[in-house]
Design a protein around this nucleic acid. Structure first.
Lengths: 223, 223
DNA sequence: TATGAATGGTTCAAAATTGGATCAAATAAA
DNA sequence: TTTATTTGATCCAATTTTGAACCATTCATA
């Protein structure tokens, strides 16, 4: 047994943690159990665990236990958690990437009845009397275009973006910055998209959607 | 009895619910019964069920019981769940949309050291002796390009896609269909991407990435 | 309609679990 | 020998679990 049993135990624990021994529960055994398992006094375990704590490998909580500090950054949960901090600019950039593509796909793949549903959402939005109603049908318009893109994954990414936007405080900002003039602009731009879709022209649909999203981006981000 | 009994019971209950144990009645047993079944105090069961309630997994009603909640199709959880069923073709279509854009962004936004990291991953992949090593560095190559696209949301979408691919059985298929010839093709195509990035040419980078992903798509989907 | 059983909601105190801290004695290393 | 490490023990503080009692609501049944 070399010198400093504690450091040896610390590296052993590190190895086990790295090998995923306790990733499932996210928690390592109580010090008293570890002491028994390693056949060593509890104080020694405490010293070893203290090293891991100093590393940032592990976090201790009185009365609860010792926990792995960084939950697997490659788990679905952490990815989604990080997505919740997405900035408006980053989100807009991706929207401008995906939605024109969705419009293009829709022009090619949508059934006539699906296109009618898109036009219907557009029409209802234009005819709506108050802002909340407009915003609902505006969102529905975009949603229905994704719905007929015939790519389920793309559709779900859009759902994801919608949820993230609705969760974010900066979405409220957008609502407040709304005006009747902007509403009319959006209606005109939506009309252009609908026209391109009905003409089954993917490139025009893509272009019209991009133009619209640039307007939305400008209104939202001021650039 | 293990530690943190309440959370353990919560995950156990989650598993049973997911496996459809109580879907026909839509109702889980009374707390007092669960307490007896798990050999634990009722308060502990209450804590566990409270976690499920917070998840939205379950709804409680005084005097009636605890019921399975109608899954909200617009919750993050259900969106992610639906994403897990993404087809290879749909996934590939989106990759061919996003990764060329990421490469384009990278050509514009990356620092020189980030580009070096990309080149390094490419080099290591080319030099790797066995297939698992190659695949690791291949993945790292793509990841690092997203990392310097300077759009965090895009980066996380890529992480999401990576996780979904790794979870899916059809990903194994791809691994089996690998050959030395393909590996060399990928190396050449990666080289073209690296060259375009270092020349800071967004359009070439985008184009080179698209070409590469068309190869990957062809190998994966056979069309 | 009235009653009682079943069920979740609430509260409380005692016991158990777990990390935090300290100290003196034993042991190993220099 | 001197110094540092480990041990073994004890007590403290935070948290969880337990066990019990009582309340409020729902629902079936007398």
């Amino acid at each position: 047994m070399p010198r400093l049993v504690a450091t040896d135990i610390a590296t052993e624990l590190s190895k086990r943690i790295a090998s995923g021994e306790w990733t499932e529960s996210g928690r390592i055994p109580p010090e008293r159990d570890l002491a028994e398992a390693f056949g060593v006094a509890r104080n020694t375990i405490r010293r070893a665990v203290h090293l891991l704590e100093a590393d940032g490998t592990v976090v201790r909580q009185v009365g609860r236990g010792t926990f792995l500090a960084d939950p697997d950054p490659n788990s679905l949960a952490s990815v989604v958690a990080r997505m919740e901090g997405t900035s408006p600019a980053d989100m807009m950039e991706i929207r401008q990437l995906l939605e024109p593509a969705a419009a293009s796909f829709a022009a090619t793949n949508a059934s006539n009845s699906e296109l009618n549903a898109v036009r219907e959402a557009h029409q209802t939005a234009c005819d709506s009397a108050d802002m909340p109603t407009f915003e609902h049908w505006d969102a529905e318009f975009h949603h229905r275009i994704f719905a007929c893109s015939r790519n389920d994954f793309l559709k779900e990414i859009h759902n994801l973006m919608r949820i993230l936007r609705n969760q974010s405080p900066w979405f409220e900002m957008k609502k407040r910055s709304f005006s009747e003039e902007r509403r009319q602009t959006y209606c005109r731009e939506h009309q252009a998209i609908v026209d391109a879709l009905i003409q089954r022209d993917p490139d025009s649909a893509k272009q019209a959607m991009l133009v619209h999203l640039q307007t939305v981006g400008y209104n939202l981000l001021g650039r």
